[in-house]
Structure formats: structure tokens, C-alpha cells
């Protein structure tokens, strides 16, 4: 409950003229104005608003030791991590990882050892239905290494990983006809009335 006469408020707020008050109320108003003047003198205005003062305090750099301590505290404090998973995106990501790990390996071909190399067998057999290569690299088995004629131009090819070394070989056309590699420089008698070709496989270290 306010015990002050409302006319004192009105006079302090300038709503009514001080001269219109009775003398005792006019004295109270004078005393209150004197007290207000004393308070204003004790706490002078800062010259800036609250917001600029708060921002200035925030921008003030912390001492460097304090910054390091804060960083260390952040590292040492357990942090809550939240994952929000969308099943569709997760499956797509898993599929991409599988593709990246498996498909390029297929494209690169077999990994070669330090003592392994590539042998390429090429022969021209326009009328052949099948061509294989048999030699000392596969115990002269006739059906294990087929050559392919993918573009049907009569040139048959196979690329084989072999340990480094020298090997004798022949082509087997249509499963029964033994034919030397006419494009090979190195030939040697096979002791059965024909000539084997020789391939030298060099290391293809990569």
C-alpha cells in the first residue's frame, strides 16, 4: 500500500504544478528531489546502454592459459553424440562402400607376387571353334586355359598370370590340333616331330 500522497507523485512527474500543492506537500517534494539529486551524483550515468556493455564483456578475450584449460576440459569431458539414421541413406552408403572395395579390385585384376608376371598368348585361327594353350605351366593339360575371340576376327587371345620362368607351350585348336605359336621368336624341338614355342615370363611387380 502506498502511503505517499498521490499529488506528490504527480508533482514529481510534472503532471501538476508544484505551486498548487499545500505547503507541507511542497516540502516533501523538495526533499525527495534533493535525495534524487544526491543519488544521481553518487552513481553517474555510464554513457552507454546495457547491450553494448554486455557485448564488450563477451568479446573480451580470455587469458591464453584459460583457453587451453577449457580445451583440455572439453577433450576430457564425455560428449553426448546423437546419430539420426535414415534407413534408405544408410543402405545407400553401405552399398557405395561395398562397390568401392570390391569393384575396383575386380578391375585391377589379380594381385601379382614379386615373382609373377603376365604371359599373353595370341594366335590367328580364323576357322577355329575353340583354342586352348597347353604347356609346362599347366602340365600340358589341354582344356584349362582357353583363348577367346571376342570380336570374331579370328584372332584368339588369353592373358595368364604365371610364376617367372621359361615355359614351352603349344596351341590346341578345336581340342585336337596341336599348333606352334607362329608369332613366337623362340622355338624348340619337342622330340615328337614338332616344335614347341617358348615364352619367358618376367616379373611384373606393381
Amino acid at each position: 500500500m502506498n502511503s505517499i500522497d498521490p499529488r506528490i507523485h504527480q508533482a514529481l512527474d510534472g503532471e501538476i504544478a508544484r505551486e498548487s500543492l499545500p505547503p507541507e506537500l511542497r516540502r516533501v517534494v523538495d526533499r525527495l528531489e534533493s535525495a534524487a539529486a544526491l543519488l544521481a551524483a553518487a552513481f553517474p550515468p555510464q554513457g552507454a546502454g546495457l547491450e553494448p556493455r554486455v557485448m564488450a564483456a563477451v568479446r573480451r578475450p580470455a587469458p591464453s592459459g584459460e583457453r587451453v584449460r577449457r580445451l583440455l576440459r572439453w577433450f576430457a569431458t564425455p560428449q553426448a553424440v546423437t546419430f539420426r539414421i535414415r534407413p534408405a541413406w544408410s543402405l545407400a552408403l553401405a552399398a557405395a562402400i561395398v562397390l568401392l572395395t570390391l569393384v575396383p579390385a575386380e578391375e585391377r585384376g589379380p594381385a601379382l607376387g614379386e615373382h609373377e608376371g603376365i604371359a599373353q598368348f595370341v594366335g590367328r585361327f580364323p576357322d577355329a571353334h575353340s583354342v586352348h594353350v597347353a604347356g609346362s605351366f599347366n602340365d600340358w593339360r589341354t582344356g584349362t586355359i582357353p583363348l577367346e575371340d571376342r570380336d570374331h576376327d579370328g584372332v584368339w587371345r588369353a592373358t595368364v598370370v604365371l610364376p617367372t620362368g621359361a615355359y614351352e607351350y603349344m596351341f590346341v585348336v578345336d581340342g585336337e590340333r596341336w599348333v606352334p605359336d607362329h608369332w613366337a621368336d623362340r622355338l624348340v624341338e619337342d622330340d615328337f616331330g614338332r616344335e614347341n614355342s617358348i615364352v619367358i615370363v618376367r616379373a611384373t611387380w606393381r
Binding site: E107, R108, G109, P110, L112, I118, Q120, S136, F137, N138, D139, R141, T144, I145, A158, T159, V160, V161, L162, P163, G165, A166, Y167, E168, T204, R206
Partner: peptide, 13 residues
């Protein structure tokens, strides 16, 4: 060529 290479059973002469 390397990508298309395959391995047979091998024996060195």
C-alpha cells in the same frame, strides 16, 4: 591386360 589375366595351375620348367 593385367585386369583380364587369370591364373592356371602352374609348374615351372
Amino acid at each position: 591386360s593385367v585386369a583380364g589375366a587369370r591364373r592356371p595351375g602352374t609348374t615351372t620348367l
